[in-house]
């Protein structure tokens, strides 16, 4: 291996690593606030990428019908709940707004000249379509069992993942898709030719990480989410509702996932079932951070990207084996250092 190749691999590794880092942060966020290990994190990535691709191809994506269906289901459940509790008539109005939004999306997707839109609008539309799925999924699958054991939450998480993958096949078909790069020109940095998409990814990831940091450190809502993660009962007593916290984290998770999908779609061909492996690498990072530390998780995920890139060079067939076996030493370290705690479930 010469320096040229090393730099190239490094660039690859950092690009993927940045995405894994975003996913690791999102997984960690969802886990600490809701105790859910968000296995479907990767589906937001593929949905984002494939929706973007179908918009660029000028196809009115079928995803919008999924959005409408879930919104209607959510509205029906809210209606049911408000009938049972006479004093809460505020809810159905909220549901109407949500249904109107979904209906508007159906209208937009079917009438806009999708392929001709500027790329920024296409990305925006993709976000507008995919991100609402996050809180809807929380509402439908997790909210009714928010206080169940973490094993039950994990099972439901896996079940949602399985369903979403099947749904992805139905909505986007079995073909992989790639989107147009955001811009054509690259950057010459001495001997290295930096791919423009790489720069976009690194810049966007950094921007997002800074944005998250500001949100959690400076805003009351961000602090409220952190508070829920630190002490659920304490947060409830402050009037921070677990439902609100759950939905908010799922909005963030869907946003991060979809954005990651849009970012990597120009450099990687994604299929309906690519999400799982991608999010698992985020999990490897999150586990390195002990499922508590954000910076360590991000660094860990970055390391996963680099290791993956370099093992591609040395032992390409064993790439996945190496990445997933990597987790074992960390698990071992955890198991040796963590003291035994009695589970209450």
């Amino acid at each position: 291996m010469n320096a040229q190749i090393a730099l190239l691999l490094g660039q690859d590794g950092i690009t993927n690593g940045a995405i894994y880092a975003l996913l690791a942060l999102s997984i960690l966020l969802v886990f600490t606030v809701t105790r859910i290990l968000l296995i479907p994190q990767g589906e937001f990535v593929t949905y984002g990428a494939l929706t973007m691709a179908s918009l660029q191809a000028g196809q009115p994506t079928a995803l919008v019908w999924l959005l409408l269906a879930l919104t209607l289901l959510d509205g029906a459940l809210d209606l049911l709940a408000s009938i049972r509790r006479p004093h809460a008539w505020r809810l159905p109005r909220k549901s109407l707004v949500k249904i109107a939004y979904a209906a508007a999306m159906v209208g937009l997707v079917n009438n806009l000249p999708l392929a001709q839109l500027p790329m920024a609008l296409q990305a925006l539309l993709t976000l507008a379509l995919v991100v609402p799925l996050g809180p809807l999924i929380y509402r439908l699958a997790f909210q009714p069992i928010a206080s169940a054991s973490s094993l039950v939450l994990l099972i439901v998480s896996i079940a949602v993942h399985v369903s979403l993958v099947g749904m992805g096949l139905l909505l986007f078909g079995p073909e992989g898709a790639r989107t147009r790069p955001f811009s054509e020109q690259g950057l010459e940095l001495g001997p290295v030719a930096l791919n423009s998409q790489t720069l976009w990814i690194i810049a966007a990831s950094l921007g997002l990480i800074i944005g998250l940091f500001v949100f959690f450190e400076r805003t009351l809502y961000g602090k409220a989410l952190r508070a829920t993660a630190v002490n659920r009962m304490g947060a409830r007593l402050m009037g921070i509702s677990p439902e609100m916290a759950g939905k908010s984290t799922f909005v963030l998770a869907a946003l991060i996932g979809t954005l990651s999908g849009i970012l990597i779609a120009p450099i990687t061909t994604l299929y309906f079932d690519s999400g799982f492996i991608i999010s698992l690498k985020g999990f490897v990072g999150a586990i390195m951070g002990g499922l508590v530390s954000y910076p360590v998780a991000a660094l860990g995920a970055l390391a996963v990207g680099l290791i993956e890139a370099f093992s591609m060079f040395w032992a390409s067939a064993y790439k996945e084996v190496i990445v997933f076996t990597l987790i074992i030493p960390f698990l071992l370290w955890r198991s040796l250092t963590s003291r035994h705690v009695e589970e209450h479930e």
């Binding site: 602090k223 952190r226 508070a227 630190v230 002490n231 009962m233 947060a235 007593l237 402050m238 921070i240």
Partner: peptide
């Protein structure tokens, strides 16, 4: 509550601020 249920990894000021959340 009996167990206080503080946000232990947050500052005293942030704990107080969250009291005014609603």
């Amino acid at each position: 509550p009996e167990k206080r249920e503080l946000f232990t990894s947050m500052s005293v000021a942030d704990n107080l601020l969250l009291g005014a959340f609603q």
